[in-house]
Design a protein around this nucleic acid. Structure first.
Length: 280
DNA sequence: AACGATCCCTGTTGGC
DNA sequence: TGCCAACAGGGATCGT
């Protein structure tokens, strides 16, 4: 089953990272795999710029973790498909696929472990930030969700499938494949519906579904944070997977009406929906 | 400009 | 049972 870090996992990671490094000065950094630093001109831009910098605050936009450093630099981390952040002492043995490390003056190491290398670490000047796709990223789906009217304006005239538009981080930042399917399921909208074809009522339902779906994901530890399972007060598995209505459930009954969930490819991604609740 | 397709990766899965 | 091809997906990039 999917273990892709989505917004809830990224937010949980951000919170842990903030506790570990906010106010701390970084003293050392290493790129273990050049591809992980591909968003800088050279890997050395990462390893040379971080040491000596103080981490002012650790924020997030969509699935990008964005830390503000002194010296007007931004330290950006994306977990990609398989990335996770480990916060450990420097003597801790390295996990395989530890593609990036940095260390605080206090001796805490931040490590990005990322087998599939879709994640990245970047350290950008204001000019580099402005020239990156981060400059054009949409508003955060959790903290800064556009209003119904703004969402309607963004969808107006668009012919692309609404699922594809939800995955476009320039429109709204933070929805990935799993949560896009779940949001559409709760709003009773077929993933292949053209973005501009949605009625005001459907846009309202879509808008209203985003917050609860993401909040529930965070509350239940996300879809992939197995490590947190034991921390949950009621002892249930710390996985959101059990709560998914449609994602990965082709052939299983829709929790609303019992109809078998179907799978279709949209925007080169698998999409799951109830053919009865979500009409084309 | 908008849209769809392709590519990058490797651990996991499913079919034979 | 064991092997290997197919699959999974976020986001950059390219062609139309």
């Amino acid at each position: 089953m999917a273990r892709v870090p989505e917004l809830p996992e990224v937010e949980t990671t951000r919170r842990h990272l903030a506790v570990a490094v906010e106010g701390e000065t970084l003293v050392w950094a290493e790129v273990g795999r050049d591809r992980t630093a591909r968003r800088n001109h050279r890997p050395a831009d990462v390893t040379e710029r971080l040491p000596g910098r103080r981490v002012e605050r650790v924020g997030r936009v969509g699935k990008f973790i964005v830390a503000e450093l002194d010296g007007d630099l931004r330290w950006v981390i994306h977990l990609g498909m398989s990335g996770r952040i480990r916060l450990v002492g420097e003597s801790e043995p390295l996990d395989p696929h530890t593609n990036f490390r940095t260390r605080t003056a206090g001796g805490v190491e931040v490590r990005l472990v990322d087998p599939r290398t879709f994640g990245f670490v970047a350290v950008w000047t204001p000019e580099e930030w402005a020239g990156s796709t981060l400059a054009g990223i949409g508003r955060d789906a959790l903290d800064d969700l556009p209003s119904r009217n703004e969402l309607a304006a963004a969808l107006a005239g668009r012919t692309a499938p609404v699922k594809a538009l939800l995955l476009d981080q320039r429109l709204v930042a933070g929805l990935g494949n799993i949560y896009a399917d779940e949001v559409l399921a709760r709003a009773c909208i077929h993933p292949l519906r053209g973005g501009g074809s949605l009625t005001p009522a459907e846009i309202g339902a879509l808008h209203d579904a985003v917050g609860p779906v993401l909040a529930e994901g965070i509350q239940h530890g996300g879809t992939s944070l197995d490590d947190l399972a034991y921390l949950l007060p009621d002892g249930r598995a710390g996985t959101y997977l059990d709560r998914l209505w449609v994602y990965g459930r082709a052939g299983e009954p829709c929790p609303r009406c019992g109809t078998a969930i179907e799978r279709v490819v949209v925007a080169q991604r698998s999409s799951h929906f109830c053919p009865s609740c979500q009409r084309r």
